[in-house]
Design a protein around this nucleic acid. Structure first.
Lengths: 359, 359
DNA sequence: AGCCACTGCTGAAACGTTTCACAGTGGTCC
DNA sequence: GGACCACTGTGAAACGTTTCAGCAGTGGCT
């Protein structure tokens, strides 16, 4: 193998060495059947001897389309997204495509920047979990003819594919569960986030709370859903929330939390336990996503499970279909979340015990 | 903006629209200062009107080098690696490079495949945490002239850059800590992995155990380091290990574990706690990596901390230096790990209580 | 002998960009 | 008034590949 220069070795060098034309080398590479066995072997030897590696840029330039798709996630440090990414890769790999994985980290400027790079790379399409409202950049991508499939986000309209989970239902499941257990003062963590997913989870929880109406059948007071400032969805933010909650006067202190994701829940749990708050008897916690770490948290965490890898697979399939060029029909599948109850919310609570002070 | 075709809009179309030559458009893009303000504006308007986006493949083809580096990690689901990736991205971004992130998932075939893709993409260099022994593919990459920096792995020789952590020390720190606490029968989890990093951790732990020698000063028996089958480094594998440990007869059952990484430790903890084993008083656990979830585990996890983002940053810096073309001096920095003691290993144990049955 | 079909290969065009030698145009200096 | 300069802009070559029209050779058929 030639030293230090294999990557500057072109198909022309191979042709020279094998004593054939460049067209023939290309044929050996792409349609070996049209080349005679003898020539084929000669070319293959030359390729091996020179350590020739195709130049993907040149291929792509000539072909007009690349062999890659883009995946732009909100937070690569969240295991939810790495699981989604696994599903995406599975499908992409089966189709012979590479995945360009980028992380917006929740920062719109990063998101825009990465979309730009993906456009410059002429990816066949982009899978993205967008931040906040659909950005102009997203529309620009579509106008440029790059298919975009929204990931973990409902589409505002039928003009694009979107793979989502029914987050209103998820929020409701979490809250209903806590209400059933007798909790009346519930706090929703992460609610200050502007992510629509989070807002839907909160709305679902609110709906469940509202549905209980006045003095419950169990004699408890009217339930309420508190909110705390803070829009980050990280373990650290969960820890801070714990401090805030414990800082509240006992009469107004919630007895349970619905967390916008598991990272928050894990941080919250950790800090509560560290301060001697007994979970679940003194305080119950429900997370969201059911990441692998949820079951291994300070107290095994009840969580709203979402089909993570399946979400990624489905999104990738839709993207490939759309990029395929055939007559594509946009779809907006919505998966149903399920509640996984673990120890962190297992205790029952007497609603009457939480009668609020007369205000 | 033209519809549906912006990505097939070339610099030539822009030139036509602006009434200039393609060379001038290119100049506006790359050296705007050599173009007169009036022309510059005209070209910029044309670009905006047409929604023109540079074709990176064509740029790259002409330039001969791409604006990307490759990052190939062992397990993207392990937060350790996402933290490392964050460090890498930081440095790459500052240099105006994109990072192509791939996951080998510990599978050599995937690793080879992804390296091939990276070579075809003509990345400026590759950062990788290799599986097992250095593969022929890695040498091939170097022979092709693609700089490769080993990540989380000591280099066998001085002919390449490698960024690592002193895993022998790390293993030793973990074991010494447990020995000091009075543990005499310690199990090492994950030891069947062929990853050199893991073997070094085990060797370090073994050294610490051996150093205690005969009947300890504290009157306890000669300490021992057990091994269990199982080479996976996942939460699930940690759970399985718990079952194995609890299946051992009490006289031979270890009283503490050093885990090859935190995923194992978290799984182990979870299952031990679930079966009512009190951690740390009945069983102590020390993990490795100190990922964010360690502190939030079933019992806050003692762990050997490694400078994760710093590892990524340093590796990326070395890669950029090597790819830069100047006179590059290979370096093999080795970072020192530190032990973070948390509750999972805090109890003291009386060594005499663990006198082994006479064999 | 003439024609055809088939096989195997060639050589050039094209993809979209950057770069570079060069040309045109005024202005400045001697 | 000529030489020189700075400033703008032009147009073609080149990057490495794929594709495609076409050519040469071979063998079979009429």
């Amino acid at each position: 193998m030639s030293r230090e220069a294999a990557l500057t070795t072109s198909i022309r060098d191979v042709a020279g060495r094998a004593g054939v034309s460049v067209g023939t080398v290309s044929n050996v590479l792409n349609r070996p059947d049209v080349v005679s066995p003898a020539t084929r072997e000669r070319v293959r030897s030359a390729i091996a001897e020179l350590g020739f590696v195709r130049n993907e840029s040149a291929r792509h330039l000539r072909a007009g389309r690349s062999r890659t798709i883009g995946l732009l996630v909100l937070d690569i440090a969240n295991p939810f997204f790495t699981d989604v990414a696994r599903g995406v890769e599975e499908v992409a790999e089966a189709a012979g495509l590479s995945v360009l994985l980028f992380n917006s980290g929740g920062r719109p400027d990063k998101e825009a920047e990465h979309l730009e790079v993906l456009a410059e790379q002429r990816v066949q399409g982009v899978l993205m979990s967008p931040i906040a409202e659909l950005m102009p950049q997203v529309w620009a991508m579509r106008e440029r003819g790059v298919p975009v499939v929204l990931l973990d986000r409902r589409s505002p309209g039928p003009e694009q594919c979107a793979v989502a989970v029914d987050d209103v239902l998820g929020g409701r499941l979490a809250a209903e569960h806590l209400l059933e257990r007798g909790h009346r003062r519930i706090v929703f963590l992460g609610g200050a986030s502007t992510l629509p997913q989070v807002q839907e989870r909160r709305a679902g929880a609110q709906a469940a709370v509202d549905a209980v109406g006045g003095a419950g059948a169990d004699g408890g007071p009217r339930p309420s859903l508190l909110a705390l400032p803070g829009n980050e969805l990280t373990v650290a933010a969960g820890r801070e929330a714990a401090a805030r909650i414990m800082g509240l006067p006992v009469q107004r202190r919630p007895t349970a939390a619905v967390c916008a994701n598991d990272l928050l829940a894990v941080g919250l749990l950790q800090e509560l336990v560290r301060h001697g708050v007994d979970v679940p008897s003194s305080f119950a916690v429900v997370g969201y996503d059911d990441i692998d770490f949820a079951a291994a948290a300070a107290v095994p965490l009840s969580s709203v499970r979402r089909p993570r890898a399946e979400l990624g697979r489905r999104a990738a399939e839709l993207l490939l279909d759309e990029a395929g060029g055939g007559h594509h029909h946009h779809e907006q599948p919505v998966f149903e979340p399920t509640l996984v109850v673990r120890e962190s919310s297992m205790a029952r609570r007497d609603p009457a015990a939480d009668q609020e002070e007369p205000s």
